[in-house]
Design a protein around this nucleic acid. Sequence first.
DNA 1: TTTTACTTGTGAAATATTGAACAAATTTAT
DNA 2: ATAAATTTGTTCAATATTTCACAAGTAAAA
Lengths: 231, 231
Amino acid sequence: MVSEKTVERLSLYRRILQQLRVEGKETIMSHELANILHIKPAQVRRDIMQLGYSGIPNSGYRIRPLLESIANFLDSPLPQSAVLVGVGHLGLALLANFAGRWRQLAIRAAFDKDPAKIGQTFHGCRCYAMSDLSKIIAETKSVVGILAIPGEGAQSVCDLLVQSGVSGILNFSPLRIKVPDNVFVEHVDLSATFEKVSFFARRMKLYSEEEKWKVENETTEGEYETLTTNQ
Amino acid sequence: MVSEKTVERLSLYRRILQQLRVEGKETIMSHELANILHIKPAQVRRDIMQLGYSGIPNSGYRIRPLLESIANFLDSPLPQSAVLVGVGHLGLALLANFAGRWRQLAIRAAFDKDPAKIGQTFHGCRCYAMSDLSKIIAETKSVVGILAIPGEGAQSVCDLLVQSGVSGILNFSPLRIKVPDNVFVEHVDLSATFEKVSFFARRMKLYSEEEKWKVENETTEGEYETLTTNQ
DNA sequence: TTTTACTTGTGAAATATTGAACAAATTTAT
DNA sequence: ATAAATTTGTTCAATATTTCACAAGTAAAA
C-alpha cells in the first residue's frame, strides 16, 4: 500500500530531522524539508500523511513526535539482522560503514568462499564459511541478505539465502536474481549506474551548449520580431 | 526525451548481450531478454525501438548490430573520464571495481584530504590533493565526479566539481547536493537503501504469514461456499 | 475580537511509466 | 504456393507517481 519511493523519502526525512533536532530545532514545515531534498512541499505532506501524523496549520510539524511516527512506521519493534555474502572490496566497505553503526539493520555475520578470510573478523564482523550460511542465518534470525559478489554465483547464493528464511535481498551483483513473490529484492547495479551518469553527463553538456547557442541567437530573433510584429 | 529508466535498461541489455555473444548466440527475441530481467517483452521492444534499430518479425534481433546500436546510443565517441573524491573504504572499492576495467567511464584520478594518501596509487589510480582538483579535471577532461565522502563536505566539493566543468555527479554521500540545471546528479544513498530493504523484508514476512493464514482458512471457506451458494 | 497571513490535508489534474493487444511482417511447414 | 505460427512495432489502456490548487484550520497582528 505504501510505495518504495515513499519509504525511501521517509528514511531521508528521518535523517534530516535527527540532525535538525540535535541543532535544537523543534518544528519544521513541509517546504523546508522540500527545499533540502529538492522536491515539492506537497510530496512531503503527502508522505507524512501516510504516517497518520498530523501537523499544525501555520506552524508545521513538531519534530519530536514526527520522528516517533517515522520510527513507528519504518522500524521493526526488534532490531533486525542482516548477513553479508562476499567480503571483497565492496563487502569490506559495507562492513566499514554499516557493521555496528546502524541500529535498525545490523550486519551480524559475513560469508566468503576464500578460506583465508574465514574465521577472521572485519570491522567487528566475523567471517564464516559458506557452508555455515543456513545455520548462522537461523541463529541470528537474519531477515536480510546482502550480496556483494560477482555475478556468477549470485543466483545459487540467493537461493540459499531464501531457503534459509531471508525475506529481503540487497543485490550488488550485476545479475538480476530470481526470487519467490514473498521476497523483496533491491538491485544496486554500480556499473549500470556509472553508465547512466556518464550518458546524462554528456547529454547535459551537449544540451547546455545548445542552449548557449540559442541564447546567443535569440537576441537577433527578438530584435527582428519587435521590428515586424511589434506586439 | 529518453528516460533514465530506459538508459539503465539499455545498459543491462548490453551486458547481457555481450555475454550471449561470447557464448555464440547470434539473435535474441524480446521475451528472452525480458525473462532474464524479469520485465515484460513489450518493454524491451519499446526500449530497442528508441535506438532506431529494427528487429525481424518472427526471428527477433540480431545481436551484433543491436549491440552496435546500443553503443552508438549510449557511448560517447571518445571514452569519458571521471574523478573520484574520497579514498575511504567505499572509494577504494569503487577504484578496485572500476578504475581500469571500464572502457566507457574510466576513473582517471582520485582525491582525498588525508595527506597520507596523497601521492599514493590505489588500484592503478593516483591520489591527489584536493587543491589540485580543478587542474586535474581540466587535464583529464573529466565529465563525471564521484563523491565518496561523508555528508559534511559534500556540497562544497560538489560546487568545486561543477566549477571545474564536470556535468555529471555520482553522489554516494547522504547529503542531497544542489547543482545547476545543466548538471546531472545520481544519488546512491546506501543507508536509505538499507532501511528500505529492511522495511520491505519485514513487510514481506508479515504478508506471507498472513497469506499462509488465509490459505489455511480458505479451504474451510471454500467448502462452506460450495455448500451454500453452489454456483 | 477580528483580521491577516500562512500552512496543512487532500481531491483532482497532470505527468510518467508500464502493460495489453493487435496489425503487419516474416519464417517455417505443408 | 499457401497456410500456420510466431514475433515485431506501436497504439491505446492501465497503473503509478507527482504536482496543483484550494478549503479548512491556526497563529500572530491589529
